[in-house]
């Protein structure tokens, strides 16, 4: 049984990769391609948020790191003329550094204190960007950013898509590696029981900071990619929207799993664009909100657990057992 599951997972991954590679050749719609690029970027962003949550820390202000990565990378690229493909990683390093600083204030905090601090941090960073730092950041007017590739290169959209796809895959592989390694185990141990983890010789402060740093780094990569894709940067990037979307994607896909953010982002993007096509406006958010709540209550491990859940329900029904109180354990 276990062996079979692994094999199927392997084929699944191969299938996705094949489709991801084939899509640009199946469609010549720039809208789809652009949508996919933005979706890939949000997969990185959601995965970054997910890694932090994996260590038991739920941030409500990840837009801060998304934005810091974007600003730092843009400023480096514009001032030095280095290609964005390189500056993305410097920009992300700045985000990681700030991530450690904010992590230092957060490591001793629990759940919703931490949520409040991160939420407030995004507001503080936005305020700094438009006040003290305005001479560098352009304030509310924003600044033009270097593009990943010049539009004069023929077929640059497709190249850009593959570049972003490569970075996305690299990020997911990196996260997979971290989750599998001793670091990931330490994250898990801290999340489950901090005292026991400490007794087992894991230093929670160090690992929590590490989680902050890695998560902020990847969020910074995502932010920088998005801005180099769009070409213009304003402080709206720090908005609450950008902090809440990754949470929504991850919860729906499956919190604390590698595939969760990927599936959540893909499914929600499709649903979102589909609802938009029907002409719904505010209704879209109501539906997404309802899906989020239903997922938390009835599918606490997200869409990735849907097949198992369905099997479970079917089995129980066959045995005529009453359904268990959902999610209560």
């Amino acid at each position: 049984m276990h062996f079979k599951q692994d094999a199927m997972r392997k084929y699944g991954i191969i299938a996705i990769l094949a489709i991801a590679i084939a899509i640009p050749f199946l469609t010549d719609s720039m809208f789809i391609l652009n949508l996919l690029v933005l979706m890939l970027i949000f997969i990185i962003f959601a995965s970054a948020w997910n890694l932090l949550a994996y260590s038991g820390q739920g941030s409500l202000g990840h837009a801060a790191f998304f934005g810091i990565g974007a600003y730092a990378s843009t400023l480096i690229a514009v001032k030095s003329g280095i290609t964005p493909f390189v500056t993305i990683f410097f920009g992300a390093a700045v985000a990681a550094f700030i991530g450690i600083l904010i992590g230092l204030t957060c490591v001793r905090l629990k759940e919703w204190f931490l949520a409040m601090v991160t939420f407030g941090f995004a507001i503080i960073v936005q305020t700094l960007t438009v006040s003290v730092l305005a001479p560098v950041t352009g304030g509310w007017d924003g600044i033009a950013s270097a593009r990943l590739l010049s539009p004069s290169i023929p077929g640059y959209q497709i190249i850009e898509y593959f570049a972003v796809l490569a970075i996305t895959i690299a990020s997911i592989v990196a996260i997979w590696y971290i989750m599998k390694s001793r670091i990931g185990l330490a994250f898990l141990a801290i999340r489950e029981n901090e005292l026991e983890a400490q007794a087992a010789g894991i230093d929670p402060v160090r690992y929590r900071l590490l989680a902050f740093a890695i998560s902020a780094y990847l969020a910074g990569v995502a932010g920088a990619l998005q801005i180099h894709h769009i070409g213009y940067l304003t402080p709206e990037l720090y908005g609450v929207d950008n902090s809440f979307w990754p949470v929504t994607y991850v919860i729906l896909g499956g919190l604390g799993t590698l595939a969760g953010p990927v599936i959540g982002t893909i499914v929600l993007t499709i649903i979102w664009e589909g609802l938009k096509a029907t002409g719904l406006t505010f209704g879209r958010y109501v539906i997404v909100g309802a899906m989020l709540i239903l997922a938390i209550i009835f599918l606490p491990r997200g869409l990735v657990s849907l097949p198992e859940q369905v099997q479970e329900w079917v089995k129980r029904r066959k045995r005529k057992e009453p359904l268990p109180e959902p999610a209560g354990d």
Partner: peptide, 16 residues
């Protein structure tokens, strides 16, 4: 298992 969902989702994207 998940691969099926993955594939289904991507097929929907392509259909889109």
């Amino acid at each position: 298992k998940y691969p099926v969902i993955f594939i289904a989702i991507l097929l929907i994207t392509a259909f889109f």
